[in-house]
Amino acid sequence: MERFVDLAVSAILLAGLYATMAYGLGLIYGVLRVVNLAHGGVIMAGAYLGWVLHGSLGIDPYLSIPLVVLLSFGLGMAMYRVLVRHLPRGAAGGPASLLLLFGVWLVLRNVAYLLFTGNDQAIRTSYSTRSLLVLGTHVSVNRLAVLVIALVTPALLQLLLRHSHVGRAIRAVAQNADSCTLVGVDVERIYTLTFGIGTALAGLAGLLSATIFSFNPGFGSGELLKSFVVVVLGGLGSVLGTGVAALVLAVVEVFAILVLPSYLTSAVGFVMLVLVLVFRPGGLFGHRVLG
């Protein structure tokens, strides 16, 4: 029972992280039709950012959230303004944007490697080992905090998209960019903001992950793929869909530990990815991706 609760908590926690990352990836794809292959790189960058702020300046990882989010937001906007914006639209845009952002990811990885070497790192705080009693089991304070933040973020984002002026503009552009241009929405500005927000979510997810898992410059590739699974399964732009899909993935992953030999558990995410793409490419909503 203890183990079960433990695993359940892990699953929910993971789901929160996955949902945060996936929401960012899905937002960018939904609005710009670009799969941000650099997403994993930004997740990794967020982790290192938190690590540096904590290690060198002694800023608590939770206090550094605003800074990390802001910096990732800026990074995302810069990526759009400097790079993605110049891609040809239409058929050639697909592979070109994939390759371009893949290049960005390689660069980010290399920069991290140069700055921090390839060693595994982790953020350790004074309360890293402290825990609370929940449902009769000990759950670390840190994990609970991450969980709360990962649950609150998508909700806040949903509020932003539904009720703010910018949010409504973003949703309108996702529906039909051409007619938005006609009614005077600055589509380029919306694209820039969207890329920034999506990337900021990746940075946040990276920072939160760093308080729980160890990471190195290669960190983020698995996270990118899992985000993609969640996006495909959950449908675009639906917070509820994203949450449910993230939970499905996390539960399958966590409980696979019980039934599979340990060396195969890391393949679960990839296998899920392929299965989802092949059998459920429409996600829960029937969005067509097959040629």
């Binding site: 793929l225 195969l264 890391s266 393949a267 097959l290 040629g291």
Partner: peptide, 28 residues
Amino acid sequence: HPTLRLRGPYFSIATIGVGEAARLVFTY
């Protein structure tokens, strides 16, 4: 074959999945 019916970014991402799953399975 089934992954090949996918197009564009879906295909590309699926190939990452197939490739990495293959690496893990064959390593073990």
